[in-house]
Design a protein around this nucleic acid. Sequence first.
DNA 1: CTGGGGATGGGGCCC
DNA 2: AGGGCCCCATCCCCA
Length: 478
Amino acid sequence: MAMVFHTQIASIMEVLANAAVAEICKLVDDDYAVFRLEITQSQKENRALRRKLQLQELKKVARERAERTMRERVIASRFSSVKILDRYRGIARGHVSFVKPAGHNTWRDDQPITVDEGSGTSTQQVIIIESADVESAGPVVKLERSEGEHIQTGVPLVATEDPTTAPAAPRTRRSIMKVGGTLNAVLKSETDTKNLMGQGRLGCPPALRSEYLLDGNPSPRMDLSHQDSGDTLQIGNDPSCSYATEMIPSDMPVGLDTQTNPMRGDWNQYSSSVNSEGSLDKKGEVIVLDEVTVKVEGDSPLTWNANETHFGEGHTQGNTNDFSDYRKSLETNLTVATHSPLHTLRDRDPLSTPMASSDSQYLFDQVLISKDQRAKARGGGATSGNSKEKRFLCMFCNKGFSSSQKVEIHQRVHTGEKPFSCTQCHMRFTQAGDLKRHQRVHTGVKPFSCTQCHMSFAQAGNLKRHQRVHTGEKTATP
DNA sequence: CTGGGGATGGGGCCC
DNA sequence: AGGGCCCCATCCCCA
């Protein structure tokens, strides 16, 4: 009897022990799985952080070099003229802008070269297009090159081209030669670039051109591809008459979701919200500004690059206005300045060393002169001219406009957005009228004829200027 | 160097 | 409100 009892006890104990072991094993397995999952996630995060770090380093190097270049040029400009600044404005940026020739075929913007991330190296001609999601898209480094110019980097490059220029391979690997890591190389590059720009002033801002295809016609595009994620970004290069957007490349997210693009809608909202009746000195408006500014900074990974000044924006005339207007705003409203993009810009600007500051000051002074001259000529100012109620303020320069559309169009001056592209060439314009006027270049239509000679002109203004030849009126020298 | 013309940028006005 | 037109300023090229 006792024997049987012991046997039963033993069997029960065994069952219990097995159950306990099984339980323990299950727990261990579960924990192990969780542990593995956590490790995997940690590794993912590490990778993302590493990428981010690399990207930051890339940007930093590019920025520093560009700033060094700019500094030297500023010094040089003291002994020459402001034109030099204009001439080299492309370099003044933290990175090289997309430079597009005005009608010259020496370089086409369908020849971009994208450099995949992870290189850890940098060149001056690097354009870093930072994706909004670093992990998913990673940085894309873009090099500028001119036709016939061989650019090389020591990193694996993925160059994707416009199918029209590379019909055989939509995505081809291209050998690129680094122009150089020295300042001289940059100067050379810029010189070349200027030549390539054809009109010089036409440094088409740069950029990332997101595109809204209105007509939906199939058009050649170039792809910015990313090695890791395989994300493909379609950048408009559509020679057709599409609705294209050019954006300042700086740290603009590559994502084409323009809704989140602080350069556009959000800021227009801002502009609409800051529909002050007067100057921004009013407290309430300042508060609004602060809120909006904070919002902009928080909503987007976009950071105002110190080098992303408007010198490089490609709008020769607009540039001057921008800085001075910014400056005015900064001078008249410290609160705004504290949170304004430009202030952020300057804060982040390593140029803010004593010497560099004076250089920046010099730049401001120079552009102020031009700005003042133009303002006088036009009898308008940022918030002056009360002939009409201008409730809509440009968030970049504080200039007032009578409608949200006006300010939206105006802000393209700052953002570089050029929605209207020519079907015949690669020119892009900020306004439809500009495109229409430009089309006469291709059609040869010259509706404006001189009554005193047989000359005709495509533009009324040119006819008017021409007629001074007959009247003897001297053309104002610039 | 200068003048003339081509062309673009920016903004105002009008419908 | 939105679009189109116009004007002025300016850059660039060329003779």
